[in-house]
Design a protein around this nucleic acid. Sequence first.
DNA 1: TTTCATAGGTACTTTTAAGTTCCTACATCA
DNA 2: TGATGTAGGAACTTAAAAGTACCTATGAAA
Lengths: 108, 108
Amino acid sequence: MAYNIPVEATLDVIGGKWKVVIMCHLIKGEKRTSELKRLMPGITQKMLTQQLRELEADGVVNRIVFDQVPPKVVYSLTEYGWSLRPILDAMCAWGEGHIDLTDAEVAE
Amino acid sequence: MAYNIPVEATLDVIGGKWKVVIMCHLIKGEKRTSELKRLMPGITQKMLTQQLRELEADGVVNRIVFDQVPPKVVYSLTEYGWSLRPILDAMCAWGEGHIDLTDAEVAE
DNA sequence: TTTCATAGGTACTTTTAAGTTCCTACATCA
DNA sequence: TGATGTAGGAACTTAAAAGTACCTATGAAA
């Protein structure tokens, strides 16, 4: 598909409500499914799996299944996923610097 | 509202299908509504207005109305909006470097 | 033996995002 | 005179995203 502006290609990969959050967690190291769920109390099992599948299909996330019971699956960023790091870092940094300043700065 | 991770604050402001695209255009200079519409052939008048209103409400975009007929309205980034620039730059750069490499790189 | 935790799958519903169509006002130009 | 461009409002519909509830398998621990 053709884009009107290159940044749309980026949005295709990291757009949506959860992908950036998931990747921000994976930046700090690989995580198994249950860890991610705990880190994101707002996400449902279904959405987590779905988003991880899409990230995997885009080559951004790696999925490693351990053949054991109870099941163990570990997710991590691929090399390709690491190429998104400047974006993730910038987004995280901005968020840290502007949490609720949207409201608070007016009062200050 | 409380966030589980700071980056959610960022997503609150620039999340969605159009906001990043709009801001990427505004980075290059102020634009009037019709210009933005031409730059984004896929957006509808309604969505454009709606997204600009939200960006304005978040203090990211400036709206200047010229009292003339036919109407003229010019949008630009506020100083606060400029603080998002590192994110926008990173996203644009990634998009430029990875357009359809998602498909092409496999073939190569 | 029953319960628990794990990593999902499936079917269904709800919510939100986005799109469509039709409307206004008025100066300008053909 | 009548069409054109501008910026947007309002009502309505459709599509996509997200959520809910319930299901599986199995080894280990209580």
